[in-house]
């Protein structure tokens, strides 16, 4: 019989078992976003720019019974003319596996910088919105949603 011969002592077997146990603990659990991940996402887009509070409004329920379908409306104060309109609104969730929720892009043809959709939330967390105006100024707001049943398959 050719082929390598592997000697396994009792100690080496125990070692391997311990290593395997350790690996399963560290092994890729689905990672979670947090407030830092949200900040990093915002920094990717608007590094070094000042972001003021206000002008953007988030309409979300205070308590969401079902995290699978949470209604969300964003509304930004703006005349929505060719010279002065809302370019984009980015929304992030700091307790989901991934921070990004959506980006809405408006145009003067929108007439009103308001739009709604529905999102999944894994747990109770903060929703952060950043709005970019046509003149480049930035506004932000934050809202907490308490989630009774999480919406990520568990």
């Amino acid at each position: 019989m050719a082929g390598p011969v592997v000697y396994r002592t009792r100690r080496s077997v125990l070692h391997m078992a311990a290593l395997a146990a350790a690996a399963s603990v560290i092994a890729p659990r689905l990672s979670k976003a947090d407030a830092k991940a949200v900040e990093a996402e915002i920094k990717k887009l608007y590094d070094g720019k000042t972001i003021a509070d206000g002008r953007v409004k988030l309409d979300v329920p205070q308590i969401a019974e079902n995290g699978l379908v949470v209604p969300i409306t964003v509304d930004v104060e703006s005349p929505m003319t060719e010279q002065n309109y809302v370019k984009a609104v980015h929304v992030y969730a700091d307790g989901n596996p991934l921070p990004g929720v959506f980006t809405f892009r408006f145009s003067p043809l929108s007439g009103r910088a308001s739009a709604s959709t529905r999102m999944r939330l894994a747990q109770t967390q903060n929703i952060v919105a950043v709005a970019e105006m046509s003149d480049g100024s930035l506004f932000t707001t934050k809202a907490e949603v308490k989630v009774t049943i999480g919406g990520c398959g568990g």
Binding site: L98, V101, F102, F104, M119
Partner: peptide, 20 residues
């Protein structure tokens, strides 16, 4: 109007927007 949706958007996605 445009929307970039990420994985956190619910099944059977709803979207409303304004138009002038």
């Amino acid at each position: 109007f445009e929307a970039d949706w990420h994985a956190a958007i619910s099944a059977n996605p709803y979207q409303s927007f304004f138009f002038r």
